[in-house]
Amino acid sequence: MRKDYKEAMDSYEEFMNEYCDFIKKFDQWGGEDLNDAEFAYYMEVQTRAYERLAEAAY
């Protein structure tokens, strides 16, 4: 197996593990408990993240 491929896959797995940990933490807050400012900020962050994902896809 190529070393750079294995390193990339290991890095991807580590990233996904961190993402899953974040989702568990985020779920504890629950979307219904966010105040207006928190929800607005959440939407700003989501927009930036989706824009970044769109850029990466092309």
Rank of each mutant, 00 (worst) to 15 (best):
F39I: 06
Q28Y: 08
K24I: 07
L53I: 03
A57V: 03
M1H: 12
Q28H: 05
T47W: 14
E44K: 11
E18S: 10
F39L: 15
Q28K: 11
E38V: 00
F39P: 00
M9S: 10
E32N: 14
E18Q: 11
A54D: 02
A49E: 05
A54W: 06
E51S: 12
D36R: 11
D33Q: 12
M9K: 14
Q46K: 14
Q28I: 04
A8R: 10
D4M: 08
F15C: 12
S11F: 12
E44G: 04
C20E: 07
N17V: 04
A49G: 03
L53D: 03
G31D: 07
F39Q: 12
D33I: 05
R52D: 03
Y5W: 14
G30N: 06
V45N: 06
D27G: 04
T47P: 00
K6A: 15
E38W: 01
N35D: 14
D21L: 09
R52F: 11
Q28E: 09
C20V: 03
S11N: 14
F15V: 13
F22N: 06
A56E: 02
Y58V: 02
I23W: 03
Y50M: 12
R48Y: 14
E7R: 14
R52G: 02
S11H: 02
G30P: 00
E51D: 10
I23K: 13
Y41A: 05
K6E: 14
Y58N: 12
A8L: 15
Y19S: 09
I23G: 03
Y58M: 14
V45L: 08
Y58L: 13
K25A: 08
A49D: 03
L34V: 01
K24Y: 10
N17I: 02
A8C: 13
N35I: 03
L34N: 04
E18C: 05
M1W: 10
E7A: 15
